[in-house]
């Protein structure tokens, strides 16, 4: 399958700080790639380098077949960008913003108007198209930015936290459109903090920590890879000594959350047997006992811990 994004040894320094440290990865055409990492890990810096906003210090980024450093105009012609913060011109109307985008991407006026009307209609903004953007809500601004990014029908879309801080309606509208776009063949590079969103949308995710890529794989494979640590949730009908639970065979740690105990265990079978024996010894009844599959959150937390490799 052709490659939409091919990154090799991309590096960016700010003074003595290495914000992005020789990262390499590729994104296939038609893929939804999630780019995850804690705050300050280098996600936005990477996205800005890939979209040609800031130049890398070293390394290469080939975007839709064009080197972003040496052929920036050709590379940028092939993708759309949805930044975290809305950056439409607030003194212009939505329609004027879209016509400006049409002109900047070289679209004929008739085509730009047709696309703008269709997309504004899809995202529920058509009846507000002649209103200045400064009067828009955050959700409306974010939807407008998405329309601006899609106007020229790009084959690749960069999104940085597209649903951050939005209401449920706007979030669902955007996610639904992203799914439809991907079904139609658009490659999506999604930077997000929202693990649930990444888990549901992305074919693969890359996790960056302190400027370095620490994992790239499908969400389910990442979860399976950390499956060696099991989680058990248990509650009793009476107070039991927490210190004693940690010492039971097969149990690594026990944390109380509300009326339940969150237990991590290296051997699920041994841990459950220990808990049953423990409840009998303390004449406590087990009210609930659930075994929890590892989530993408767990994988993320494990992979982004400073002590892990």
């Amino acid at each position: 399958m052709p490659v939409a994004i091919d990154v090799k040894n991309l590096t960016k320094r700010f003074g003595t700080t290495v914000a992005v440290d020789h990262i390499s990865f590729s994104v296939q055409e038609g893929e939804i790639f999630g780019f995850l990492g804690p705050n300050g890990a280098g996600k936005t810096t990477t996205t800005r380098m890939l979209t040609g906003v800031i130049p890398p210090d070293s390394g290469t980024a080939i975007i839709t077949g064009h080197d972003i450093r040496h052929e920036p105009v050709l590379a940028k012609q092939g993708f759309g960008v949805v930044p975290e913060t809305s950056n439409a011109y607030t003194d212009l109307t939505a329609w004027q913003n879209l016509m400006l985008m049409g002109d900047l991407y070289g679209l004929p006026r008739a085509k730009a108007e047709e696309r703008a009307s269709d997309l504004l209609g899809t995202l529920g903004l058509l009846d507000r198209k002649d209103q200045k953007v400064q009067a828009y809500s955050k959700g409306m601004k974010q939807r407008l930015i998405l329309v601006m990014a899609l106007l020229h029908e790009p084959g690749l879309l960069f999104l940085d936290e597209p649903t951050s801080g939005l209401d449920v309606q706007s979030t669902q509208m955007i996610l639904s459109l992203l799914r439809d776009l991907n079904m139609a063949g658009t490659t999506i590079f999604l930077t997000t903090h929202n693990m649930e969103e990444a888990n549901r949308l992305c074919h693969r995710v890359g996790i960056i920590r302190s400027g370095k890529m620490v994992a790239i794989d499908a969400p389910e494979k990442l979860k399976a890879a950390i499956g060696r640590v099991h989680k058990i949730e248990v509650s009793f009908d009476r107070e039991i000594p927490g210190d004693a639970i940690v010492t039971l065979p097969g149990i690594q740690s026990a944390n109380r959350t509300g009326d339940k105990w969150q237990i991590t265990a290296d051997n699920r079978d041994v841990a459950i047997r220990s808990l049953v024996t423990f409840s009998r010894q303390h004449e406590a009844t087990i009210v609930t006992l659930n075994t929890l599959a590892p989530s993408l959150d767990d994988a993320f937390l494990l992979l982004t811990q400073e002590t892990s490799p």
Binding site: P83, M101, G106
Partner: peptide, 14 residues
């Protein structure tokens, strides 16, 4: 300040 310069910088213009 308004971040619109970043919008222009990500468009296919020199």
């Amino acid at each position: 300040q308004a971040k619109t310069l970043e919008r222009l910088a990500s468009c296919p213009v020199r």
